[in-house]
């Protein structure tokens, strides 16, 4: 319990520090960076893994948990180990609840 507390404290310090130094949060805090153009193209950087994929939905594992993307006619236009480009009509985007 104490250890978890300590960890959350250190995380809070880290976040404040990156904000202070204006560092890119996604790389320091290990959270994904999402870029969406309208509802068509979406670029997700700094993801961890692909959990589920079909034309109606995508589940992506990231540093902050699982991100769900719902849509129709979805396809992965490009995929490398750092980023993933998703194309198609995006209907909704769901983030994990992070306390």
């Amino acid at each position: 319990m104490a250890k978890a507390n300590k960890e959350s404290v250190s995380k809070g310090i880290r976040e404040k520090l990156t904000e202070m130094l204006e560092l890119p949060k996604e790389s320091v805090l290990d959270i994904p960076k999402l870029t969406i153009a309208g509802n068509k193209d979406m670029i997700i950087e700094n993801y961890k893994g692909l959990l589920e994929f079909d034309s109606a939905g995508i589940r992506l594992g990231t540093g902050m948990g699982t991100i769900k993307i719902r849509g129709s006619g979805l396809l992965i236009k490009e995929m490398t180990c750092d980023d993933i480009v998703i194309c198609g009509a995006i209907h909704s985007l769901e983030f994990p609840i992070v306390g």
């Binding site: 893994g49 994929f53 079909d54 979805l74 396809l75 992965i76 490009e78 995929m79 180990c81």
Partner: peptide, 28 residues
């Protein structure tokens, strides 16, 4: 198939135009 894709990513294999044709079948 997602596992296949993840392993590909791990081994620095670039993939593009991944389409899910139906459950358990993808073209890339």
């Amino acid at each position: 198939v997602e596992k296949f894709i993840n392993i590909c990513m791990h081994r620095q294999i670039k993939l593009w135009d991944i389409r899910a044709q139906r459950k358990g079948l993808m073209t890339m």
